[in-house]
Design a protein around this nucleic acid. Structure first.
Length: 757
DNA sequence: CTTTCGACTTAGGACGACATCG
DNA sequence: CGATGTCGTCCTAAGTCGAAAG
């Protein structure tokens, strides 16, 4: 792999500039990714051992000793699982019953009563006609139940809705949430927290009965530059027509970015820019290199500087208020009987397209979206959003089989963009929950599936072997499915099924290991995946077979694509697709790691470090990277300085304690005894502070180029984290911020400390 | 069957608000 | 109190996957 894939300053992938850091990263990644796999018994599919973090030796060693046995004789873990399998169903039944009655360890007991089916009129602006807004009755469910759900019924189907309104529950809730929640409550004051997860879901494929919203917020119109700010062509000032000027400003705003120097970017920009020019402008401007945007660029810099300056001042306040007003007006919709937050109600403003990686379309003009481009989706009986005066919507439709409120077609790829609800909404939450339930179903049959694909490695048919090897990679390495992509339309990235010969290297023997496969390719977002991993002999032989008579640019799996693979998976388990393996392996890894890493006697910060480490194991598995923060080295140094200082403080405090003790021994009076106590406390306090700093430093160092957020948000069953918090009395706020708590409200409400993924 | 489309999830980076420190 | 560092939010690109279209 070469160059920096256009990720510019991102060190993660920069090759040309930061090849050193690059290499370093590779090494690190290699170390972590391979190491743990090397150590894991081949039957031990899911363990990401703490050895992954071998850099942190004492730590690793300590934990390792503790845990080694159970982990490596993982037959035991499997047996264990096996044993529980039968019980599983029963247990779930019990769970269901139990959760209907009470949540034992919730602070201030809050169940028994609690299933509010929200009909609070306050929450509803315009009540839809009668029975229009409610979920179908259970009887009705039976008849129309989606097949897909059948298997899930057991674990996923929400409990029956029992109780009507309960104001007490509401009140209690208020008491027990901590102060910082106050705001949220005010925001949704009238609409008390709605527990959609305690209601029936739609089973007929419809997504809602009633939908009303205000439509999108458009990008502000273009404001022409003041006359004093000039554009120069070939050294001479030139006044541009408004359309040409607008596009020019897009370029000017990006002048500091490396990519404005890239050929493709410039070529694409120039081509699209010309389309906006008057014929006169076209005839004058014939060479982008003669264009001077610097004055414009300076002007924008000055402007943003000015904006920063007026922070805090009243003008800032005004802007804030205006934003709040827009949020209140456009940021919510009514779906069925509830006011729900919209995710992205602002239409993307025009600008220059910047794809990730080496994107062939970088620099193209992303055009301004007008009302005429917009399709509105809402229910017939709702108050339809009004287009801005003098304009019309492209279309207004009433399709309750989809979840979007607004859509338009974007001009770069010709794909459709949507306005949809916030992750905290019912419609997103249900789907999320369902996703984890599917992954849990995979847990139950994953052994069978693994046995089968290992068998398939021996198949007579090439396509079956390829399928089986690909599936092995998806399972073991958490690779993405890898749809084919249209060449020349997007950056050249691959996933499992689209791997090419050039992306892997085979080493019959490497260092001490046999049958090593080296992966090196760009995945989603042009993030590099680099890994060396020993595989089973049979896999290795198969790979050699697949490679025969092929060119580097040929497909590794020429008889396979995602559609074939997913069809096969569907047959193995209802609802199974390639990405379920990622979810499953991520969640199960978190659960295992938490079990392994959490020391009961640890302090809370130490436990949180363990959590972060478990989270990190998952992020490494899923290859979630980030560019190391620009200020990383410096801030690390600062932290180290602080630690050193603290250490000095500590030894000073210890000395004082010693002196005080001696003093006390000599005098035995009350006063000196007190002094000893005081000094002892001081030492203790400083020790704690030091500990905290050290933990912080370790955590940050380990996290240098690993992004935890993505897995936390998309792959880890939140109930695992919630259960862990409950088990160890860790405040949930330490793990999830406000937004995350909103998204995972369902899990926070329903998971108990003994929840098992 | 293959290709394209549509809807939805997953992803990293930019940026500004907020916290913390000297 | 201003500078600096951190964190959350916003943004929108880039995937997955099923279904429609050809």
């Amino acid at each position: 792999m070469s160059g920096d894939h256009g990720r510019g300053d991102s060190q993660v992938n920069s090759g040309s500039k930061g090849s050193d850091s690059h290499k370093h990263k590779d090494k690190q990644q290699q170390r972590s990714l391979c190491h743990w796999r090397a150590l894991s018994d081949l039957l031990d599919w899911n363990s990401v051992t703490s050895v992954a973090f071998s850099e942190h030796k004492e730590y690793a060693e300590k934990k390792h000793k503790d845990k080694e046995k159970p982990r490596h004789s993982d037959g035991s873990a499997d047996r264990h699982r096996e044993k529980h399998k039968d019980k599983d169903k029963e247990k779930r039944k019990e769970d269901k019953l139990q959760s209907l009655s009470s949540h034992p360890d919730k602070p201030k007991k809050e169940k028994e009563n609690g299933y509010v089916r929200e009909r609070s009129p306050a929450a509803i602006k315009s009540e839809p006609e009668d029975d229009n807004g409610f979920y179908p009755s259970p009887k009705h469910n039976r008849a129309t139940k989606r097949e897909k759900d059948d298997d899930e019924e057991f674990e996923y189907k929400p409990k029956k809705v029992k109780v009507e309104h309960d104001k007490k529950a509401k009140k209690r809730k208020h008491e027990y949430e901590d102060d910082e929640e106050e705001e949220v409550y005010q925001l949704n004051e009238e609409e008390e927290k709605w527990k959609w997860w305690e209601e029936e879901r739609y089973t007929d494929g419809s997504k809602w009965r009633f939908l009303e919203h205000k439509g999108p917020v458009f990008a502000p119109p273009y404001e022409p530059l003041p006359n004093k700010v000039k554009f120069y062509y070939d050294g001479k000032p030139m006044k541009l027509s408004a359309p040409a000027e607008e596009v020019a400003t897009f370029f000017a705003k990006m002048l500091d970015h490396e990519y404005t120097t890239k050929d493709i970017f410039r070529k694409n920009f120039y081509k699209d820019w010309r389309k906006e020019m008057t014929s006169e402008e076209k005839s004058i401007i014939t060479d982008l290199n003669k264009c001077d945007f610097r004055e414009m660029s300076e002007y924008f810099k000055a402007q943003s500087e000015a904006r920063k300056q007026m922070s805090k001042e009243e003008k800032q306040q005004k802007i804030k208020e205006e934003n709040e007003r827009i949020l209140q007006e456009y940021g919510f919709c009514i779906m069925d009987n509830h006011k729900e937050r919209i995710g992205n109600f602002r239409i993307e403003p025009p600008g220059l397209f910047r794809g990730r990686g080496d994107h062939p379309k970088m620099g193209m003009l992303k055009r301004r979206i007008r009302p005429e481009d917009i399709i509105i989706n809402c229910s017939k009986d709702s108050k339809q959003p009004k287009p801005p005066p003098g304009t019309k919507w492209k279309e207004v439709r009433h399709d309750n089989k989809v979840t979007w409120l607004v859509s338009w077609t974007e001009n770069i790829q010709g794909s459709i963009k949507y306005i949809m609800l916030n992750p905290s909404s019912r419609i997103k939450g249900e789907k999320d929950w369902q996703k984890y339930e599917t992954a849990r179903r995979l847990k139950k049959c994953v052994d069978r599936i693994r046995t089968q694909y290992r068998d398939d490695w021996k198949s007579k048919e090439m396509r079956i072997r390829q399928r089986a090897v690909a599936l092995y990679f998806i399972d073991k390495l958490a690779l993405r499915a890898g749809n084919e992509k249209e060449e020349g339309e997007t950056a050249d990235t691959v996933g499992c099924c689209s791997l090419r010969v050039e992306h892997i290297k085979l080493y019959p023997k490497l260092d001490e290991q046999e049958y090593v496969v080296e992966f090196d390719f760009l995945g989603k977002d042009s993030i590099r995946y680099y890994n060396k991993i020993p595989v089973e002999k049979r896999v290795f032989k198969n790979l050699q077979l697949f490679l025969e008579n092929k060119q580097p640019e040929d497909d590794l799996f020429d008889r396979l694509n995602t559609s074939i693979l997913n069809k096969h998976l569907q047959e193995l388990m209802d609802g199974l697709t390639a990405k379920v393996f990622r979810t499953y392996n991520a969640s199960i890894t978190l659960q295992q790691q938490l079990k392994e890493l959490t020391c009961p006697e640890d302090s809370i910060p130490a436990k949180i470090l363990s959590y972060n480490r478990a989270n990190r194991a998952v992020a490494i598995l899923c290859n979630h990277q980030r560019a190391p923060p620009k200020t990383f080295e410096k801030s690390m140094q600062n932290l180290q300085t602080k630690i050193d200082e603290k250490q000095k403080q500590l030894s000073a405090a210890r000395k004082q304690l010693k002196a005080a003790k001696a003093d006390h021994k000599a005098s035995h009076d009350e006063k000196s005894r007190k002094t000893v106590e005081v000094k002892r406390k001081a030492v203790q306090r400083i020790e704690e502070q030091l500990m905290k700093l050290q933990v912080q430093a370790t955590d940050r160092e380990e996290n240098k180029q690993i992004a935890l957020g993505t897995s936390k948000l998309n792959y880890l069953d939140p109930r695992i984290s919630v259960a862990w918090c409950k088990k160890w009395s860790i405040p949930i706020e330490k793990i999830y911020n406000k937004t995350q708590r909103e998204k995972f409200a369902w899990a926070i409400d329903m998971a108990e400390k003994d929840y098992e993924f």
